[in-house]
């Protein structure tokens, strides 16, 4: 029998921060939460969920003067998938979203939730493009990576995708079937003229990221493939990265 989680719905960002301050570790920020439920098992979280789904965190999608894209942390994934600006500026993101959860899940799940959940597919893609997380309060921006907590003390406000002129992006998820499946492997790469940034997640492991010169020096860095992951996952991830990179290299040569 599932324990029913306790929710509070703050009026605005300040209210959310204030509630979090009063609850301390007994409160966590949440949004949508459909995706997070997969990690709850048979029991909901014991903390109070500070539901930020209804907060005004700005437009879902903004194109900054610098060319970077600012995405609201509580934007539902399906809304992002259908956003015309995303389709134009970040088509690889819109396309990849088709493989993240089902439509029903994407209607509920938020970008911030997927990135901080600890098993979200988008974390790999956003690590590859070196997206930054911007938190409330001191306005700090932080890269995705092991130092980001899945239950941050600060409220995640937005995600900034840097301008990626001339860079080639690839991303692929390997699941158990064509649609609506947890991922076994996600690989992504952002390849520029001089360097490439690659990211990999093998099921049950954190995202690994590596910067490498481009054209590449083979073989791929072993650090990308978590040490104790199943050999198959490593092989598949290796093949996927090598395949995508080889295709890009061929295009470069052409």
């Amino acid at each position: 029998m599932n324990a029913q989680p306790t929710y509070v719905r703050p009026a605005d960002v300040e209210d959310a921060i204030s509630i979090k301050a009063s609850l301390g570790p007994a409160g966590i920020y949440g949004c949508g939460l459909t995706a997070a439920q997969l990690g709850w098992g048979v029991k909901g979280p014991e903390q109070t969920i500070i539901d930020i789904a209804g907060l005004d965190l700005g437009s879902d999608v903004c194109l900054a003067d610098s060319g970077s894209m600012v995405l609201a942390a509580n934007a539902p994934l399906e809304r992002l998938r259908l956003d015309p600006l995303i389709s134009r500026q970040l088509p690889w993101f819109a396309e990849f979203l088709r493989y993240v959860g089902s439509t029903a899940t994407r209607n509920q799940a938020s970008l911030g939730g997927n990135l901080l959940w600890g098993a979200g597919d988008l974390e790999v893609l956003f690590a590859a493009v070196d997206a930054k997380l911007r938190f409330a309060g001191n306005g700090r921006a932080q890269s995705l990576g092991p130092t980001v907590s899945d239950q941050p003390e600060d409220l995640l406000i937005s995600i900034i995708v840097p301008a990626l002129q001339g860079q080639r992006i690839f991303v692929e998820k390997l699941g158990h079937r064509q649609a609506f499946s947890p991922s076994r492997v996600v690989v992504a790469g952002c390849v520029g003229r001089q360097s490439a940034r690659l990211a990999v997640r093998l099921a049950g492991h954190p995202v690994a990221t590596v910067e490498t010169p481009w054209p590449m020096n083979w073989p791929l860095d072993d650090a990308l493939f978590a040490g104790n992951a199943a050999p198959y996952l490593k092989s598949a991830a290796h093949n996927l990265l090598r395949g995508h990179l080889a295709q890009l290299a061929q295009r470069d040569m052409a």
Partner: peptide, 28 residues
């Protein structure tokens, strides 16, 4: 042929829901 199997380990059912037992979807 391709996706479905309910594994047991020492008598314990390992897939208790459809998030770990994979029936083909229309996409497959």
């Amino acid at each position: 042929c391709l996706t479905e199997h309910q594994p047991y380990e020492e008598g314990t059912v390992m897939a208790s829901n459809f998030d770990s037992y994979f029936i083909p979807t229309i996409a497959d």
